[in-house]
Design a protein around this nucleic acid. Sequence first.
RNA 1: GCCGAAGUGGUGGAAUUGGUAGACACGCACGUUUGAGGGGCGUGUGGGGCAACCCAUGGGGGUUCGAGUCCCCCCUUCGGCACCA
Length: 823
Amino acid sequence: MEERYDAKAIELRWQRYWSDEGTFKVAEDPGRPKYYCLEMFPYPSGRIHMGHVRNYSIGDVVARYKRMRGFNVLHPMGWDAFGLPAENAAIKHGIHPRQWTLENIDFMRDKQLKRMGLSYDWDREVTTCLEEYYRWNQWIFLKMYEKGLAYKKRSYVNWCPSCNTVLANEQVENGQCWRCGSVVTHKELEQWFFRITAYADELLEYCDKLPGWPERVLTMQRNWIGRSVGVEVDFALEGTGEKLTIFTTRPDTLYGVTFMSIAPEHPLVEMLIQGRPEAAAVRSFVQRVMRLEKAVRTDESQEKEGVFTGAYAVNPLNNEKVPVWVGNFVLMDYGTGAIMSVPAHDQRDFEFAKKYNIPVRVVIQNGKNNLDPTAMKEAYVAEGTMVNSGPFDGTSNVEGKEKVADHVEKRKIGKRTVNWRLRDWGVSRQRYWGTPIPIIYCESCGAVPVPEQDLPVVLPADVQFTGKGMSPLAESASFRETSCPKCGGKARRETDTMDTFVDSSWYFLRYCSPKETKAPFDKNAAAYWMDVDQYIGGIEHAVLHLLYARFFTKVMRDLGLHGGDEPFRNLLTQGMVIKDGAKMSKSKGNVVDPDFIINKYGADTARLFSLFASPPEKDLEWSDQGVDGAYRFLHRVWALMHRFSSRVQGMRAAAAEARGDRLFRKTHQTVKKVTEDIERQFQFNTAIAAMMELVNEMYDYTAQPVPDEKLPVVRAGLETITLLLAPFAPHFAEELWRALGNRTSVAHTAWPAFDPAALAAAEVTVVVQVNGKVRNKLTLPIGMSDPEIEAAALGDAKVREHTAGKTPKKVIVVQGRLVNVVV
RNA sequence: GCCGAAGUGGUGGAAUUGGUAGACACGCACGUUUGAGGGGCGUGUGGGGCAACCCAUGGGGGUUCGAGUCCCCCCUUCGGCACCA
C-alpha cells in the first residue's frame, strides 16, 4: 500500500476495474429480492453542477448499501435529452441540436459522471432524443389518442414569448415561464392535450397511499389537483329560453343570491346584451379585460370590477329576479364560468356589492342572531342557522348544504358535482427539438393518426435554425408535406412536438428493458423491477414531473402494459446546494465547479463532503473548508491503514472473544449506528459522524504501541471502517479492502453485522440530579438494582451538599441514565 | 389569507420513547513537530464568573421530579397554493 493517499490514481484504477469486470451490471433474478434505486436523470446541458453531485452521491450510497445487503440492485442512468437549450445553441452557434446534445452527453458521461464512481449499469443508458426512445412516445400518444386520452382543442393557452412556445399550467410559476422567467401571455390556439383530468380522482386518492413520500410534496399535489365538491344550479335567463348554469360550494346560501357574475368570455354574454342599451359598455369592458396578460388578470390585487348586462336571471328557489353582471374576477375555465353571488356570506361578493350598491341579504344567522345587512362590515362566512330561506329556515347551514342539494336534485334544477383545479395537460410545443406528434392532417379525412408501422416519425435533419418565424419543423416542406395514410390524398404533418415532460414520464419503465424493440418496455422485466423502491431528486419537480409520471403510470397500466398503480414507492427530495446564502447560479457568481473539486480532492472527498454537511432533504451550505475536513478524514483513515496493513494482512478479525475491549465495543456500536442511520431515512451525515468517532477512537487506542495480541481487534476496526465507508467513498474503500489482503471487490461484500453482546460496557455513567439540576456524575457497574443506585446517589457528597440534610420527597431512578433526588 | 416545513454555539449541524443540550465537523486559540511556511499530531473552545455557581435551544405562559422534545399564545424565516365561486 502506498504511503500517500493519491485519490486520482486510485479512482481511475477502480473505475476501470468496475467497468472491465461489469461489477454493476444486473439482470432479472427471481431468486433474489430486487431493489430499484433511481435518481432523476439530468438534462445534458454540457456540465454537471453540484446539485447533480449531491443527488447522485445520495443515490449511489443507497444503491451500494442495498447491494451489500444482498439486494439485486437496478441503478440506471440516462439523459433527458430533448429540450430548448439545444435548440437555442443551434440558433446561437449554428450547431445542430442533435450534435450539441450527443456531444454534451458523451462529455458528461465519460468525463464527469464516470469520474464520480457512481455504480450505474451503463448498459441500460436511456437517451430520450434517440429514435429508439421517442418512437415509443409516439406509440403511447397513439394509444392515448385511441382511448380519447389525447385530444386536440382550441382554447386559451399559456404562451411564452421568449421560448416561442405554449406551456402547460404546471410550467407557469407566478405568471412566469418555469424555464426562462418571461411573463407568460395567453393565446387562443388549437393544441393537443392529455386528459390528465380523467385521473384527477385517482391521483388525489393515491396521495393517501404514498407513505414513503414527503408530506409537503403530497400537499402540493393535493393543492394542485384541487378537488372541490358542490352543486350546479340552473338559473333561467328572463325573457330568453336559455338558462345560466352556475357552480357553488355553498348551496346553503342560495336564498341569499342578489346578483349573478359571469366571465367576460362566457358564450352567453353576447346573447344577453343584444339590443340592450348596456351592450356597448359591456363589450368595451369585455375587450379591456380580455386584452390583459394572464398574469395581470389573475393577480389577486387586481381591482374587482364588473358591469351590469341589463339582463336578469331567476333564482329557481324563490323565483326572485337578480341582475346578471360580467365580472373581471370570474374564470371561464373553472366550474361553469358563471357564479351566483351572495354578498352577505362571501367576502369578495360583499366588496363587489358595496362597490356597486347591490343589496346584501343575510340567510345564515350567527349564534347571537344579530347580523344586520346594513351594518355589516364584512361577509359572515362562519357556520350558523339558515334564515330567509323558505322551508329551510331554522336548519343549521351545515345540514342545509345537503338538504338544499337534495332539493335541487329532486326538482331537477341542478345536480351535485365535483370541480377540479387540475386542467388537462397541454403537450403541444412549437419547437423543433422534441418528439414529433404522430398525426397527419388530410384535407378530406381530417386528423389521421400515423399508422403504427410507420413509426417513428423522424425529426428531419435538414432544417434551418434562425430563431425567427415559426419552428424549423413547420418551415420544413419535406417534413410537412405528406400523403394521407387513409385515402392517399394530399396531407400535411402536425409540426408541433411534444412537451419534453412526456419523455420523463415513463423513462423509469424503459430502464427495465432499455433495448426492447417491440414495445416501450418488456412487461416481465417491468413486473420484476417496478416500482422504483427509492426515487431521489429535487423538490422543484413536486408537481411537474412527479405528477405527470404518476399519470403516465396509471395510463400505461390501463393500456395493459404493466401492473403498477404508482411509479415511485419512496421519494426523497434532496435540498439545494447553497453558497453564501443563495442557490448556486452563474448569475450570482457563486458556482463551485464539480470538476475542480474532483480534480483537487478526488470524487470520494466530493461525495463524502456533500453527504456529511447536512441531511439529504435539507439545503446544503457549501463550504470549501468543509471539503478540507472530509479530505482530512480520508487521510486519517489512510494513514491508520498504512500503519497497520502489513501487520494485520491475512489475519482473522477479532470476534466474540474480544467482547469487553473498548475498541471492539466501539466498532460494533458504530456498525449499529451507521446501519440504523442509513435505514432510518438516510441520515448519512450522522452515519459519517459515527465513522469519524470510530476512527478517532482507533487513533486513541493505537496512540501507545499495540501489542500483537490486540492486533485482531485493530483488524476488526479497520475491516469495519472499510466496509462502512464502501457506499460513501467507494474507490477509497476498494483500495483499503485490497490493503487488508482481499482479492474481490468490496462492492458485493456483505454489509457488516454487529454483535449485540459486544455493545454494552461494564460500567455506565449515571447523572445525579437534585430537583432536576445536574449535580454530579457517577460511574457505576452495570446491572445494579434501583435501590442500589438510589443508595449510591444519596450517599454522594455533592448530593448531600445540595439536599442540605432535608429528607428526599421522592427519588427517581432511570436505569442506565440518571437519578433525580427531589427535596 | 390557506397549507406545509423550520428557528439550537462564531459556522454546518447532533440529541430513539420527555432523561448529561451542543455528538461529529469547520473555524479559532494554545502547545508540539519543522530552519520557516504548509501539513501533521495534541489540548482547549456556548455565555457570564477567580470560584462555588448562575444563565442558555426565536419570545411568553403551562404540564412534569425533569422540556430543545409535550400543550397554549405570539414572533420570524423559507417553500407551496392563492379572485377556484
